[in-house]
Simulated assay, not measured.
Amino acid sequence: MPAPVEEGTRSPGHHIELVDDNPSPRHEGEASPGLRNSKGWDGKLRVPPKSAVLANPEALSDPEYSDDENIHPGEEVAADEDLLDGEPLDTDEIMCTHSRIQSISALQLERFTRVERICLRQNLIQDIEGLDGVAATLQDLDLYDNLISHIGRVGLEPLTELTNLDLSFNKIKHIKHISHLRKLTDLFFVSNKISKIEGLEGLEHLRNLELGSNRIRVLENLDSLKALEELWVAKNKITELSGLGGLPNLRLLSIQSNRIRDLSPLKDIPQLEELYISHNALESLEGLEHNTKLRVLEISNNKVISLEGLGPLVDLEELWASYNLIGDFAEVERELADKKRLTTVYFEGNPLQLRGPALYRNKVRLALPQVQQIDATFVRAS
């Protein structure tokens, strides 16, 4: 769609002028009065009522009339069952993306006796079915960006060898019928319509769980995931960090773009190494004192005024704190100068940068001589 033309401007090559040559009231179907270009065209392609001529009037009276000789052949789309005819039967990977596939069964996957990975991204698949024949070898199933609205009991039942399942960008409302997939290590449900974390019992080997861009309000039903290392729940409606205490191996939490105000529940996961919590409602870093193993902390786009609370985080390597309310260089030095492993800091958009942008980076370098990158700029070693 072309960009709208602002009032008082003209698009090149299209001179428009207002001429009030028809002051009478406008009837329905007529052009707006006076809006014409330099050649008199008023923006509508109109044909006088009696000037239209039908090129083939016999088409109106002859029910068997055909104009096939004038039809241009369109692009022929292969049927689903023919799409994989060129694949060797002993292949270990099938990738068929953006191919308008509607039926997995029609692909006749049972022909491929050694297939380990199937990627059917960006198709029109509505149901998970037709995978029984590859269940013995299939380890990775990628159905990202399809039209799946529910996980049926039968579809995934035979796939007990799966280690990776990606159902992101579908229309799924409930997590169910996957608890028998005990070998799963990576599970992706990004951008669906899920409102509750459930149905994960039995996934004792799961290491990575992605639930971003859903409708989740509460972190719950995670205690059975003892091996979980990474939890991604950005862009939901979560208000509290509770419900994580049963995850002894969790080292990465991404909970950006939610509604978090209080960090104190993080004391239940002292082993955490990476925390991404930008775009929330934080005003303070109080509550991080127990997370002494944090290496990466991302708190950008909050309302944090002070860096107090970072003192015990001796292993901190990266601090991303852009667009907050931090304004005291002395506090920056007091809280971060002893962090020998700190290599990267982001403070752009804070009062300490906005008040004196010309001297900002030099002041950070003086306060934190160990830092190698300030915002997007790498610092030269002196």
Score class of each variant (00 low, 15 high):
T163W: 03
K176Q: 14
E129N: 06
L120N: 06
L131D: 08
L200W: 14
D145H: 01
K193I: 01
K183Y: 11
I216A: 07
E198P: 05
L184P: 07
F188N: 10
I118H: 09
L141K: 08
D140F: 08
R207N: 09
H174L: 01
D127H: 03
L200F: 13
C119Q: 13
K173C: 06
L181R: 15
L156I: 12
I175K: 05
G202C: 13
H150L: 00
E201F: 13
G202K: 11
P158F: 14
N123G: 04
I148N: 02
D140Q: 14
L162T: 06
L141F: 08
T185L: 06
S191I: 00
D142S: 14
R182Y: 10
I151T: 08
L167N: 03
L187S: 04
R182W: 03
L141W: 08
E220L: 09
K193A: 06
D132G: 13
I178K: 11
H180N: 06
L184Y: 09
T160L: 14
G133S: 14
E129A: 07
L167A: 02
H177P: 03
V218Y: 09
I197Y: 02
L211W: 00
I151K: 06
Q126G: 13
R117M: 05
L165D: 09
A136F: 06
K173W: 02
Q126W: 00
L156R: 10
V134I: 07
S179P: 04
G130W: 14
H205W: 12
E220C: 10
E201P: 00
K171T: 03
G130T: 12
R121W: 01
L156K: 13
L147S: 07
E161V: 06
K173P: 03
E157F: 13
L124F: 03
D127T: 06
L209H: 12
T185M: 08
I172E: 01
N123M: 01
R153D: 07
I178P: 07
K171L: 13
T137V: 05
R215H: 14
D140W: 12
L209T: 05
L181F: 12
L206H: 13
D140P: 00
L131T: 12
N192I: 00
L187D: 05
Q122P: 00
H205C: 11
C119M: 09
Q139T: 09
I175H: 05
L131K: 12
T137L: 10
L147R: 13
R121S: 14
H177V: 07
I128T: 09
